[in-house]
């Protein structure tokens, strides 16, 4: 892994990394992932995260946002947001509603288009490519889908597929996108659902699961793609208070195993315990950023102080 060339933003270079196009990804690649990872054992202590997901271009930040601007019509929602997320770092973004934190999260995997700036995930431009002449144009559907497959996202409203069982939800993407054989994908899905504590609910449809259980299935579904980055969009905001704990437990386990996470949340306790850095956003820009102790105990900015006063 020493001789990694500096990642280009052009897409005509053949890709030799794990992020190779799906057609190059052989059937055995995913199977090897399972064989090599501790998940191959039936050890209950085995991690949720496969080691392969963690080793990428070391030295290149996992997420790099440079002066991101976004408008919805005439309203400017993101005004020059710049931030860097290192490999294995856990970032928690907090802020009042309308501050653009969810929008920024959605820009990271190109669920929203941006009008200015760049976002790079693991050194690769997301959603856009550079044409000859340096012009930045929107990327093709296939390339965007490829990038998105390496980024996992968990939504506030779970967005489970209601016409599929929990197991089918989890194997849907690996079988259809990565073309993993169904047996392998089912095996992995059983493991993941077991790890999140839903081994007895694999054949239930989402309408037979509680909110917390649905969100845990959603997390397992995102993890089934072996992403190198996980995005959490207010994952516990739509849950009853007594169900929040079980989801936070899974998120905490994920964090401990070294997954790079960007979390938008209102759960300050979680932020304090798990975050490496807390970022406070307000009205489309980053007001303050720092380790949780600094932000929560010694907020510098006036706006941070008033927000924390309201929340805590």
């Amino acid at each position: 892994m020493e001789d990694v060339p500096f990642p280009h933003t052009s897409s005509d270079e053949p890709d030799h990394t794990r992020d190779a196009p799906f057609s190059d990804r052989s059937e055995t690649a995913y199977a090897d992932t399972i064989r090599q990872s501790p998940l191959a054992t039936t050890d209950q202590e085995a991690p949720l995260v496969s080691p392969e997901a963690i080793e990428q271009h070391p030295g290149v930040p996992m997420v790099q946002a440079e002066d991101v601007h976004k408008r919805f019509g005439s309203t400017e929602v993101l005004r020059g947001v710049s931030m860097t997320v290192q490999r294995g770092e856990k970032i928690v973004i907090i802020g009042p509603s309308g501050s653009g934190k969810t929008t920024f999260l959605r820009c990271i995997n190109h669920l929203e288009k941006i009008q200015g700036g760049r976002i790079l995930v693991d050194g690769q431009l997301v959603g856009y490519r550079e044409e000859k002449g340096g012009k930045i144009v929107e990327d093709s559907e296939r390339n965007i889908a490829r990038m998105r497959a390496q980024i996992g996202m968990v939504f506030q409203r779970f967005n489970l597929f209601p016409h599929l069982t929990a197991l089918e939800n989890v194997i849907e993407a690996p079988t259809k996108v990565l073309r993993v054989p169904k047996a392998r994908a089912s095996e992995r899905a059983h493991e993941l659902l077991g790890k999140v504590g839903l081994a007895d609910k694999v054949n239930n449809y989402p309408n037979a699961l509680s909110g917390g259980q649905q969100q845990r299935v959603a997390i397992a579904r995102a993890l089934a793609m072996n992403p190198k980055l996980m995005l959490f969009d207010e994952a516990t905001s739509a849950l009853d208070p007594e169900l929040v704990g079980e989801v936070l437990k899974v998120m905490r386990q994920l964090a401990e195993e070294g997954m790079t996470m960007v979390v938008v949340t209102h759960e300050m306790g979680f932020a304090r315990e798990v975050a490496d850095r807390v970022i406070f956003m307000d009205q489309g820009s980053i007001v303050e950023a720092g380790p949780p102790n600094d932000i929560f105990n010694n907020p510098g900015h006036e706006r941070t102080q008033s927000f924390l006063r309201m929340i805590l």
Binding site: R142, V177, M225
Partner: peptide, 27 residues
Amino acid sequence: VDTGQMEAAKSLGMTYGQAMRRIVLPQ
């Protein structure tokens, strides 16, 4: 069909066509 369905499918790396065929149209 809730727009979140298409978004979830896309975030898992499905193309528009795959998401339509497997997720949105059945619903």
